[in-house]
Amino acid sequence: MSDLEDISQHVHDRISSLKRLLDLSLAELPQNKMKKLGQEIFAIETLLEEFEKCVDHQREQLRNLQELEESFQKDLADVSHMKDNIPAHMPKREGPAQTREPVMKQTEAAVLQPAQQEHVRKSSRSFIREMDFITVPEFDSIPQYMRGRVSYEQLNAAVQSINTAVTTKYRILHQAVRTLNNHSRKLQQRFKEQETKQTKGHFFVVEEDIREFNQMKVDKRFQGILNMLRHCQRLKELRGGGLTRYVLL
């Protein structure tokens, strides 16, 4: 802006000088004065061209600043939207896909010490698989007729409830019988009786487990949520013996 002001002031001074020369032109001027008048006019024309270039440059800078401001405002709006819409649950990293112990070669098994073998067994038994939370794109992919009035937060709250039931169930299953009270022993026995060949190596719960560990109503609305979780490939159903088993995928 200072360059533009300097040029403007310089042009103004030259025009003032030119006016004085024109005022003097009413009288007869010597040839050298007429020549100087022509030089002044030429100089002012040159300055006006520079002035126009400077104005164009300033316009370009103003346009760039306006575009930068628009981009900044858009980024600010996006950040504000993300701040106001942080999901209650974030997707977790995928855990180990298999819960079974790795198969070792006979030579490797022979070298492995008994204490190390016991550690491997305990580590495998202590792992409990949980269902990953539903992401926003996954939720948007669920057909509207299937979603009904269930919100994104409500769906992930159900995921959390199922994870609580799974974790509580398998902690009881992994405990030694002598460490359990009477109620937990009955639960452990029930869990074992509900297992089948199809559920071996998988984690599952039944409706009774969800009610037992969450005090939730397993009603028609919850059945609709289970359908959405099947659609998102979080679980599958296995039926048999009068039970529906919800197996985590």
Rank of each mutant, 00 (worst) to 15 (best):
S2Y: 07
S2T: 10
E5L: 15
D6I: 14
D6W: 03
Q9T: 15
V11N: 12
H12S: 08
L18V: 02
L18A: 13
L21D: 05
L24M: 09
A27T: 14
E28L: 04
P30D: 15
Q31C: 10
N32R: 10
N32K: 06
K33F: 09
K35C: 15
K36D: 12
L37S: 10
Q39A: 10
A43C: 03
T46N: 10
L47Q: 13
E50K: 15
F51H: 12
F51T: 02
E52M: 07
D56R: 11
D56F: 06
Q61I: 09
R63K: 14
Q66W: 08
Q66F: 13
E67C: 04
E67A: 14
S71Y: 09
K74L: 07
D75F: 07
D78W: 05
D78I: 08
D78R: 12
V79T: 13
M82D: 12
H89Q: 15
G95R: 04
T99M: 13
R100G: 11
E101L: 11
T107N: 06
A109Q: 11
A109F: 13
V111I: 15
Q113A: 14
A115N: 06
Q117I: 10
R121P: 00
K122R: 14
S123P: 07
S124G: 10
S126W: 01
S126H: 06
F127T: 08
I128C: 07
I128N: 06
I128H: 05
I128R: 07
I128A: 04
R129N: 02
M131W: 03
V136P: 08
P137R: 05
P137H: 05
E138H: 02
E138L: 05
S141C: 11
M146I: 11
M146H: 05
G148R: 10
R149G: 08
L155M: 11
N156F: 00
A157G: 04
Q160P: 01
N163R: 05
N163L: 03
T164W: 02
T164C: 10
A165P: 01
A165E: 01
T167S: 15
T167H: 13
K169H: 03
I172R: 04
I172Y: 03
I172Q: 04
H174K: 08
H174R: 09
H174N: 15
H183T: 09
R185N: 05
R185C: 05
R190L: 09
F191W: 00
Q194K: 03
Q194G: 02
E195C: 08
E195R: 08
T196S: 13
Q198C: 03
Q198Y: 08
K200F: 07
G201Q: 08
F203L: 01
V206Q: 14
E208M: 00
I210S: 04
R211E: 14
F213Q: 07
Q215P: 00
Q215Y: 13
K220C: 09
R221P: 11
F222C: 03
I225Y: 01
N227A: 06
H231N: 06
C232F: 00
C232D: 01
R234N: 03
L235Q: 12
L235R: 14
E237C: 05
G242Y: 02
L243Q: 15
R245M: 01
L248N: 07
L249Q: 14
